[in-house]
Amino acid sequence: MFQFKKLYLVAGVTSVITLLGACSSPPEYATKGTDLDVIVDTAPGVHDGDGYGSESGSGVEMLPLNRAGQDFSDGALEGEGGDPMADFQEIEGVEPVIYFGLNQYELNDENTRLVKHFAQEMLNNERLTVKIKGHTDERGTPEYNLALGERRAKAVAEAMMLHGIGLSRIEVISYGEEMPVEVESNEAAWQQNRRVELEIR
C-alpha cells in the first residue's frame, strides 16, 4: 500500500499541460529599425540522419503530432521473465506528475510505482503515446537546468520502457526552468516546479 497524498495536492496541472501543448503560435520576427514586423521564413533545419528533423522547415507552428489513431507495430514490448505489471494496482485520479528533490533525477519507490501505473494505462491501450516533459526549479543556471530537466524526463522514459512501453511511443522534452507551475521564489514553489509531466494521449 502506498499513499498519494502529496500528489493530490497538485492543482491545475492539467490546465498547464493544455497551455504548453496547444497554444504555440508562431513567433513574430521583427527587423531592426522598423515599425513593422517582417516575417521571414526559416531556413531548412539540419538533418541528423536519425529520422528527426523531417517535419522541421517553416519554423512556424511545428508541434509534435497527436498520434492517436496511428498504428504502432512495436506497441507492447513485454518484458522477459514475467509480467512487469504483476504487482500493479489500479490508482484512480492521480495527476500524471512526478516530483523530484533538489538536483535529483532518480526515481524513488513511490515514483517508480507511479510510472508503472501510467505504463499500464498505455499497455492497455496501444494507441496511446506519451510526451514526457522534464522541468526544474529556477535555481541554478537556465542551460544546466535544461539538461537537468532532460535527465529527469529520461529517467521516467527509461522506467516506462522497462515496463514495456516502446521507444516509438515516447517523446522526451525538457523545458528546464522555463515553464514553472508556481512562480514564487520559495521552497514550496520550487518543490512544485521540480517535476516531470506525462502527457498521455
Partner: peptide
C-alpha cells in the same frame, strides 16, 4: 539583426542549446 535572414542551426533529437 538587419532582418535579412534567420536560420535554424540545430534541431537534433533531444536538447539543442
Amino acid at each position: 539583426l538587419d532582418g535579412a535572414y534567420r536560420h535554424k542551426m540545430a534541431s537534433f533529437k533531444g536538447i539543442n542549446s
